[in-house]
Design a protein around this nucleic acid. Structure first.
Lengths: 215, 215
DNA sequence: AAACTGCCAACTGTCGACAGTTGACAACAT
DNA sequence: ATGTTGTCAACTGTCGACAGTTGGCAGTTT
């Protein structure tokens, strides 16, 4: 389960920085000072620059010439644009999953849903971890490597914007229902329904992010 | 009309290298020697490495640890996977374009189609340039910046794989018909039809690339 | 001849230092 | 007080050099 174990310093720096950006340890809007971070990581500026450029290409940092790298702040228009991309990708993935899923894919999806229910009934909040796991399992079932790759990147960016997201119980419940419905459509091999449900699901999630963004 | 005019050497190197990779000046399968290319461009290895990493993130180069950067060779599975991604993105773009297009978007699309016809009647082959222009205009009409961004990257990768693509006249004609049909659906605001036509269009293009890949 | 071993050249990964640019602050003029 | 200009520190962009790794080749062994 250990993430690939990069040998190069640049690769390690990518992992560390990505973690720090996603967890908010480096807060949105803040600048990344090359010399400072390089010293903190115990490496030189060369590999660090490559790491920064890499994260920028993933959308986790924005580069400003002669100014440095910044963690992009959440923005209403950005959320909408990002969810349009996510919808395009995940709806396609849902369709493909409906026609390509194996039986073990199906079991995995049902297992994630079941664990979510268990967790919810135990009174604990629906952890984002399980939501991510569900979507991950679904795109794996779609068996389209390039689409999967892009979905992962987009979901990462969504996590980045998720900082200011309160956990609304009713929304959690709705999400779990959506997931169940999706699994059913995929089990039936009903691509059209899978796509429709996914679109509705993401539309709801997007709306919730937008409202919780307005405080 | 000058492309952004990068000030940094790394930015310039990206433009030059991208050009050389896409035109096949650096042929698929070949290695990119850092010191050699750096000298040829008159820059140091630092900026060049950043340029190489950038192109790798665009999928135009593949990185092998301690071995260097290679231009990826065309592969049947890769073509299929890439077109699944492209279909997901461009179908979504077609739907959005159908509901968001302005009148000037429509005029631009019709203009590109008309120029294609003119060119075709003049006996000249349907230039890929016009095909690209059509799809570019369409995604601009969709007004979804993040989707547009990804479509551009995917199309670039398609161009890279296009090296061994013979120009089949019947295919050219079919493509132009598809384009006309797409514009009509977008003009009518018919998102469903636009998506369907786009899917059929890309499916045909993909099939043609696959057959011309088998020699 | 085939397989193994040890060496070597070429190249990537990394570092520390220099040069050029930017934004901010202070001094000055109005 | 307000706007302008000059100066400066901090930081990014770039370079040349060193270290570690890789693949191949020659020499050796069976």
């Amino acid at each position: 389960m250990t993430p690939p174990l990069h040998l190069s310093l640049a690769g390690q720096a990518v992992d560390v920085l990505r973690e720090q950006v996603l967890t908010g340890e480096i807060p949105p809007g803040s600048r990344v000072n090359e010399v400072e971070v390089a010293q903190k990581l115990g490496i030189s500026r060369g590999p660090l620059r490559e790491a920064i450029r890499h994260l920028a290409s993933e959308g986790l940092l924005t580069l400003v010439p002669h100014r440095g790298a910044f963690v992009p702040a959440a923005d209403s228009d950005e959320v909408k644009a990002l969810f349009e991309l996510r919808t395009a990708l995940e709806c396609a993935a849902a369709e493909l999953a409906a026609s390509r899923r194996t039986d073990v894919d199906l079991v995995r999806l049902q297992e994630v849903c079941a664990e979510s229910r268990r967790n919810y009934r135990a009174g604990q909040p629906f952890p984002y971890r399980l939501d991510l796991a569900f979507h991950q399992t679904l795109i794996d079932a779609a068996r389209s490597p390039r689409i999967a790759e892009q979905v992962r990147l987009v979901q990462q960016r969504v996590v980045l914007l998720r900082s200011a997201l309160e956990d609304d119980p009713s929304h959690q419940h709705a999400s779990m229902d959506d997931h169940d419905e999706l699994v059913k459509a995929i089990a039936d091999g009903d691509a059209a329904t899978a796509s429709t449900v996914m679109r509705r699901h993401l539309s709801r999630v997007c709306a919730q992010m937008l409202t919780s963004l307005d405080h």
